[in-house]
């Protein structure tokens, strides 16, 4: 599997990345969409049943046209009016966007949906899935032709640091040069790991909690070696609080 993110560098030199959705997440979203399509088709067939008393021929024709229009038009209409999302994609928090970060155009939506005819071959989107799996941007054939990608649509989750930061005294702050080195040496993922461990500390079994914070403390101690006065007598969990305090807050 290739890189799961799409990196874009703007002419102003701003870099941003979008998390790409892989074939499994997309398949789940498609399964939900398939369910929606089946519900719509059932509704149309009930509507057609009502018409049977007026004209049986018209009822069958409505059913045939309804099946065709819904199966092809569902993706086009939803993705155009919901800006790259169908119901399944909304639930799975996925979105279709232009592969170069530009605004999604109508013809892109149409092409990626029409090419489902090939992507769906021979069964259950086998061709599309295989192409998506090996594509650098996780694109199926429809995405390649339409110049689109499917990204994960993130939700803002502001870190609630009040409940994890040390209240009064942080022994690591006594050594500002070492604290600065710690900030420099810790990656975003490592910092997030420490925050998440503190946020979820009450959900762990006592033994697991001790083991986890011991492991985390050992990891962060290996990054920067604070003098014994700053670390002696501090539990591993408190040490991680101090580390998070150094990383996230000035005071």
């Amino acid at each position: 599997m290739n890189s799961p993110s799409l990196e874009i560098r703007t002419p102003e030199g701003i870099c941003f990345s979008q998390m790409l959705a892989g074939p499994i997440a997309r398949f789940l979203a498609w399964s939900l969409d398939l369910f929606c399509i089946l519900v719509l088709l059932t509704l149309v067939s009930y509507l057609a049943l009502l018409l049977i008393f007026v004209s049986p021929g018209l009822a069958v024709a409505l059913n045939t046209l309804g099946y065709f229009v819904i199966s092809i038009g569902y993706g086009i209409v939803c993705e155009w009016f919901w800006r790259g999302q169908t119901l399944g994609k909304r639930v799975c928090r996925l979105r279709v966007v232009d592969a170069e970060g530009l605004r999604l155009q109508f013809h892109q939506v149409v092409i990626r949906n029409l090419l489902r005819f090939v992507d769906a071959l021979p069964l259950l989107y086998f061709v599309g899935g295989v192409v998506c799996w090996f594509s650098p941007k996780c694109q199926r054939l429809g995405d390649i032709a339409g110049g689109t990608v499917v990204i994960r649509h993130p939700r803002l989750l502001e870190p609630d640091l009040d409940q994890v930061l040390p209240g009064k005294f942080n022994s690591l702050r006594q050594y500002p040069h070492l604290a600065a080195r710690l900030r420099q040496g810790v990656s975003p993922a490592e910092a997030a790991l420490a925050v998440q461990a503190l946020l979820r500390r009450d959900h762990f079994q006592p033994e697991a909690r001790v083991a986890l914070f011991a492991e985390l403390a050992a990891h962060f101690k290996s990054k920067v070696d604070f003098p014994p006065e700053a670390t002696d007598g501090i539990a591993d969990e408190q040490y991680i609080r101090n580390v998070v305090g150094v990383l996230y807050s000035e005071h």
Binding site: F16, Q18, V97, G101, R155, L156, L157, R183, P188, A192
Partner: peptide
């Protein structure tokens, strides 16, 4: 800076 990744992703999405 070692920041909260969710916030960074949100900002990336907004900038995109």
């Amino acid at each position: 800076f070692s920041s909260e990744p969710e916030t960074r992703r949100y900002l990336e999405h907004l900038v995109a």
